[in-house]
């Protein structure tokens, strides 16, 4: 699943560690989500959405979604 986490983080000038601290996860987790190695759970996706004050679908893109 693609996501805009890296862009959103860069816009706020946060490091991966800063974002990890704000989300209460490890830096490796942020890196794994940004690089698409790991899809976060729904609770974590909601936390990310709340942190950036955006709807989930504006952060995560479902690559399998039809027209």
């Amino acid at each position: 699943m693609k996501n805009r986490l890296k862009v959103l983080r860069a816009e706020r000038d946060w490091s991966q560690g800063d974002l990890a601290d704000r989300l209460g996860v490890s830096r490796q987790s942020v890196n794994a989500i940004e690089t698409g190695k790991y899809d976060p759970s729904l609770p974590l996706a909601f936390r990310i959405a709340r942190l950036f004050a955006l709807p989930i679908e504006q952060i995560f893109e479902d690559g399998n979604a039809g027209p």
């Binding site: 490890s26 490796q28 790991y38």
Partner: peptide, 8 residues
């Protein structure tokens, strides 16, 4: 662990 570490 957080969820990613647990999954890994």
């Amino acid at each position: 662990m957080d969820e990613y570490q647990r999954w890994r």
